[in-house]
Structures are given as C-alpha cells and as structure tokens.
C-alpha cells in the first residue's frame, strides 16, 4: 500500500483530471475526488492519515471513505506496477 502511494509521486497531474505516467507512457482520467486523492498521495504515504485528510474535506463517514480509497488504490496498483 505504502509503495503504491510512493509511486504516485512520478505521476503528472493536470487540473482537468488528465494523468500521465512517464514510466509506462500510459495516460488516465480521474474524477475530482480521484485528483484530490492523488494530490494528497504525492505528499503522504500513510493511508490512515490520507483518510483523515479526506474526512476533513468531505462529507462522508470514515468507513465509506476508507472503502472507496482502498478500492481506488487497488485500481491504481494494477495500473502503476
């Protein structure tokens, strides 16, 4: 989990949600929430703290946020390996 958060540092993020991975040459689209998570992840390799930060910004339970973030990270893992 930690590794994958570290790997987000290499991603180029744009305001519109366009994401480029210079290692694989692949590009992605993320929605607003996805963009917020990637931005946070570039400076934060602890998933618990990342969830805390999201809780401050968003109106949702920590259970819901944790579940969705974990889902998102898993997805990312598949793309960035």
């Amino acid at each position: 989990m930690k590794n994958i958060l570290l790997a987000t540092k290499r991603l180029a993020l744009s305001e519109s949600g366009f994401v480029f991975d210079p290692v694989s040459g692949q590009s992605f689209s993320v929605n607003d929430t996805g963009l917020v998570i990637l931005r946070l992840a570039q400076h934060q390799d602890d998933i618990e703290q990342l969830t805390e930060q999201l809780l401050e910004q968003f109106d949702a339970s920590s259970v819901e946020i944790k579940r969705d973030v974990q889902d998102f990270i898993h997805r990312l893992q598949g793309f960035l390996k």
């Binding site: 992605f28 993320v30 929430t33 401050e56 109106d59 949702a60 998102f72 793309f79």
Partner: peptide
C-alpha cells in the same frame, strides 16, 4: 468553513485505451 464540506463522490480512475 468546516461546516460546508464537499459531498463525497467515489474516486474513479480509468486508463485511456
């Protein structure tokens, strides 16, 4: 303002294919 948090929309990432 803490009271006006953004609504949570599940994060999505899709690969351009």
């Amino acid at each position: 303002n803490i009271a006006t948090k953004n609504p949570w929309v599940a994060p999505v990432i899709v690969r351009h294919s």
